[in-house]
Amino acid sequence: MYSRVFAGMLGILLAMMFMGIALADKENASTTDSIASPQIAITAANFVAPSPEKEHLNEEWVEITNLGTSEINLTGWTLSDAQNHTYTFPGFSLAAGAKVFVRTGKGDDDIENLFWNRSNSVWNNNGDLAVLKDPEGNTISMYPEEGKGA
């Protein structure tokens, strides 16, 4: 009788040990994946266009940088301010190590500049919050970092 109980408990302990190893391996894999994945960040912003603002809207911009080692497709990502004015990225990919400026005013998109094509300003002159989200709505980056004042 005791040998059956002992064998049963030994079996349970071995199963728990193997599950613990499997879970640890899974945790390590996800940590490695997040480290190896490309990083996109808002690295700078200019919320104040020279006066009169309506004539200098392209001087309002947010700089987004690919800090990773591979190209990232930003199609469907969004950039918004604290009042939920939202820019949706068109079909656009950002090369590894490259940056792009999202400008409030009008212009033709290229690999260094994307234009919101607005006729009035977006960003508050006394400071604002720029929020970059992926197509699933996950916040990827904020500027200033973590919503701290400008």
Score class of each variant (00 low, 15 high):
residue 1 M to L: 11
residue 1 M to N: 10
residue 3 S to L: 05
residue 4 R to L: 13
residue 4 R to G: 10
residue 5 V to N: 08
residue 6 F to N: 15
residue 6 F to D: 15
residue 11 G to R: 08
residue 12 I to S: 12
residue 12 I to A: 14
residue 13 L to P: 03
residue 13 L to A: 15
residue 14 L to E: 09
residue 15 A to P: 09
residue 18 F to C: 13
residue 20 G to P: 10
residue 25 D to Q: 14
residue 26 K to Y: 06
residue 29 A to P: 04
residue 30 S to W: 11
residue 30 S to D: 06
residue 31 T to E: 09
residue 32 T to Q: 14
residue 35 I to Q: 12
residue 36 A to H: 10
residue 36 A to P: 01
residue 41 A to C: 05
residue 47 F to T: 00
residue 47 F to Q: 01
residue 51 S to C: 00
residue 52 P to K: 07
residue 54 K to L: 11
residue 54 K to Y: 12
residue 55 E to Q: 15
residue 56 H to T: 04
residue 59 E to C: 04
residue 61 W to K: 14
residue 62 V to G: 05
residue 62 V to Q: 08
residue 63 E to H: 05
residue 63 E to N: 12
residue 64 I to Y: 03
residue 64 I to T: 01
residue 64 I to K: 03
residue 64 I to D: 02
residue 67 L to R: 10
residue 69 T to H: 12
residue 69 T to L: 08
residue 77 W to L: 00
residue 77 W to C: 01
residue 79 L to E: 02
residue 81 D to L: 06
residue 83 Q to P: 02
residue 83 Q to N: 12
residue 84 N to H: 08
residue 84 N to A: 13
residue 84 N to P: 01
residue 86 T to P: 04
residue 86 T to D: 05
residue 88 T to R: 09
residue 89 F to L: 05
residue 90 P to K: 11
residue 90 P to Y: 02
residue 90 P to T: 12
residue 91 G to E: 08
residue 91 G to P: 06
residue 94 L to W: 06
residue 96 A to Q: 01
residue 97 G to T: 05
residue 98 A to L: 08
residue 100 V to H: 06
residue 100 V to D: 05
residue 100 V to W: 06
residue 102 V to C: 02
residue 104 T to N: 07
residue 105 G to C: 10
residue 105 G to V: 07
residue 107 G to I: 03
residue 109 D to W: 07
residue 109 D to Y: 06
residue 109 D to V: 07
residue 110 D to Q: 09
residue 111 I to M: 03
residue 112 E to D: 13
residue 113 N to R: 08
residue 116 W to T: 10
residue 117 N to V: 07
residue 118 R to H: 11
residue 120 N to R: 08
residue 122 V to N: 03
residue 125 N to C: 04
residue 125 N to I: 00
residue 129 L to F: 02
residue 136 E to W: 02
residue 143 Y to A: 13
residue 143 Y to V: 11
residue 145 E to C: 05
residue 146 E to V: 10
residue 146 E to T: 06
residue 148 K to D: 02
residue 149 G to V: 15
residue 149 G to S: 14
residue 150 A to K: 07
residue 150 A to V: 14
residue 150 A to E: 03
